[in-house]
Simulated assay, not measured.
Amino acid sequence: MNTLNPDPSGTRINEFFQPIGPAVPDWTARAYPSHTPTSGNTCRLEPLDPNRHTGALWAAFSAAPDGRNWTYLNVGPFADEDALRAHLVREAASGERQHYAIVERATNEAVGTFALMRADCANGVIEVGFVTYSPRLQRTTIATEAMYLLMCRVFDELGYRRLEWKCDSLNAPSRAAAQRYGFSYEGTFRQAVVYKERSRDTAWYSIIDSEWPAIKSALQAWLAPKNFDTNGQQRQRLGQLIGLRLGHESNGPGIPGPSSD
Score class of each variant (00 low, 15 high):
A172W: 03
A92M: 13
Y181C: 04
A56S: 15
D82E: 06
F189Q: 11
R175N: 03
R190E: 00
N171P: 06
V103S: 02
Y133I: 04
G187A: 04
M151A: 06
E157N: 13
V154E: 01
N108D: 15
G95S: 12
L73I: 02
F130Q: 09
A115V: 05
T141I: 06
P77W: 06
T107S: 15
E186F: 12
G159V: 06
L84R: 01
D80T: 11
R139M: 00
T107N: 11
Y195D: 07
A146D: 03
S174F: 12
R153D: 00
E81G: 07
Y148I: 02
D156E: 11
L116P: 02
T107I: 12
A93Q: 15
P135H: 04
A110W: 08
I142V: 12
S134M: 05
E104C: 08
G76Q: 04
R180H: 05
S94M: 07
R162S: 02
V75S: 09
R90V: 11
D80Y: 12
F183S: 07
L149M: 07
L170C: 07
M147H: 10
A86H: 09
N171L: 12
L170R: 13
L84T: 01
G182S: 13
I142W: 00
Y160I: 01
S169A: 14
R68W: 02
V194R: 13
G76F: 01
D80L: 12
A63C: 05
S62H: 08
P77L: 10
V125C: 14
M151N: 05
V125A: 07
L88E: 05
R162Q: 02
T144I: 09
Y185G: 07
A92R: 14
P77M: 05
E96C: 01
L57A: 11
T140Q: 01
G129V: 04
A60C: 06
